[in-house]
Computed example of a mutant assay.
Amino acid sequence: MAHQMLKPYSFLLYFLSIIAFFFIGVTYAGIVDAGKNQGLAGGAIVVGYGIISTVIGLVIALVIAHNTNRKTIFKLNIILALCSIGFYAYYHVKYLERQKTKEQDQPKIEQPKKQTDTPLSNDKLL
Rank of each mutant, 00 (worst) to 15 (best):
V47H: 05
Y90L: 15
I85Q: 07
K124G: 02
Y90V: 13
I73V: 15
F23E: 01
A89E: 03
Q115D: 08
N77D: 15
A61T: 01
F74M: 09
A20R: 04
L16Y: 03
Y91C: 06
A2G: 14
Q4Y: 01
A41L: 15
L96Y: 09
G50Q: 06
G35S: 11
F74L: 13
L40Q: 11
A29D: 05
K100C: 01
F23R: 04
A65R: 00
L13S: 06
L40P: 02
L96D: 10
A65K: 02
A29S: 13
L80D: 07
A61D: 03
L62D: 00
L58A: 12
Q104E: 15
D117A: 12
G43R: 00
V63F: 13
K7S: 12
N67L: 13
G42T: 04
F74C: 02
Q115N: 08
N122A: 11
L12E: 06
V46E: 07
I60W: 02
G43W: 07
E103R: 14
N37R: 08
E110R: 10
A65Y: 05
V47S: 10
N67T: 11
Y91K: 08
K108S: 08
L6N: 07
I24Q: 10
Y14W: 10
G35T: 05
T68R: 11
D123I: 13
V63P: 02
S10V: 03
N37C: 03
K124C: 12
Q115F: 12
V93G: 05
A81R: 01
I52D: 02
I60D: 00
V59F: 15
F87E: 04
K94V: 04
I78D: 01
Y88E: 05
L12Q: 08
F23N: 07
A44I: 10
Y14K: 04
A2E: 07
V26G: 03
I60G: 02
K113D: 04
S84V: 02
F87S: 05
L80K: 05
G42N: 07
V26W: 09
V46W: 03
L120Q: 14
E110S: 12
F11S: 02
Y95D: 14
L12H: 00
E103S: 10
Q38Y: 10
P112I: 00
L82M: 13
L125W: 15
I73M: 08
S17G: 09
Y9A: 01
L12G: 05
I73L: 13
S17N: 09
L82I: 09
F22K: 04
A20C: 14
K71L: 13
L62P: 02
F87P: 04
A89K: 11
I18K: 01
V46H: 03
A65S: 14
K114R: 11
K113I: 13
G30Q: 07
K100E: 13
Y91L: 10
L6W: 10
